[in-house]
Design a protein around this nucleic acid. Structure first.
Lengths: 149, 149
DNA sequence: TCCATATCATGAAGTTACTACATCATTACG
DNA sequence: CGTAATGATGTAGTAACTTCATGATATGGA
């Protein structure tokens, strides 16, 4: 057994990262949607109908870009632009039945994946693993903020 | 303390995935390079000078696309196209001094990151964490291959 | 030796995702 | 009530991808 190193851990994280992306890639082909559009639908699934501004902030892209993504999703019938009830400048991006189906499907396969990957790990090991991930996320976030300055 | 769940674990993995991308984004701005070009240089760092075909296979994109990326890197002075010693059809994509500097810099900051994230984890916890990652990668890979069929 | 076939790189054409900047409508505020 | 901020979009441009076609070279038989 090799000795575990920080470098080994991060290499494996990168590998998992790649696997996750390529899993998303599989889903892209299956649904005919592209990654950024799936991402947008995902956000809609998390927060319900929202303005393009909010979507832009959540996805960390420019509002102009969201306009383009929504154009595409409107053309493919996954979302509609509804008038905002109290602000006539804004539009509420709202999933259609087809959009909701994609969102649900996506969430389901995400849950499935979670269960298939970690479902039969002992509670103990899962807890330890999750704890390390939490520490790592916290540390990483701190590092990123530090560099901001 | 909440009970750890498979869903919680995969959520955290996604978060880390995002953090890793945004760290790469930081490096992009710093170096003036784009993610796919950095990725190409990274491959060059791993395997040394290679043909565009091999790069395309390693990066899982079309050879035509590699041509474009190499064009950009030639223009910015990070790589050159050298004649292949034994196959006059092929070119050996070779990093210049500037390219090597970027590669080294990138590898160094990757190692730094690894140490900053995991450096002061106990050997025991690091080993456990790495082990779970290994199992997860193996399981994920198996799942992906299963779907291929 | 020569010919058919596979392989390497690239030209041509087209799509998508992004950006910055300008503009128009509307809202919010002093 | 007018001025400044805000929400969406038009315009223009870049980069990364794709597929399909083409020219040059390799390769493996008849």
């Amino acid at each position: 057994m090799e000795k575990a190193t920080p470098r080994g851990a991060i290499d494996r994280l990168m590998q998992l990262s790649l696997l996750i992306s390529s899993d998303l890639g599989r889903y892209e082909k299956e649904s005919g949607l592209t990654a950024p559009r799936i991402h947008l639908l995902w956000q809609l699934g998390l927060g319900g109908p929202t303005t393009q501004q909010r979507l832009a902030a959540a996805m960390e892209v420019t509002p102009r870009n969201v306009t383009g993504l929504v154009d595409g999703l409107v053309a493919s019938g996954h979302v509609t632009r509804e008038p905002h009830p109290s602000d006539r400048r804004a539009t509420l991006v709202t999933p259609t039945a087809a959009g909701l189906a994609v969102i649900k499907d996506n969430q389901d396969s995400y849950d499935d994946l979670a269960r298939q990957l970690f479902g039969d790990l002992s509670a103990r090991r899962l807890a330890d693993f999750t704890a390390v991930l939490d520490v790592t996320i916290a540390r990483f976030t701190a590092l990123m903020e530090e560099v901001e300055s």
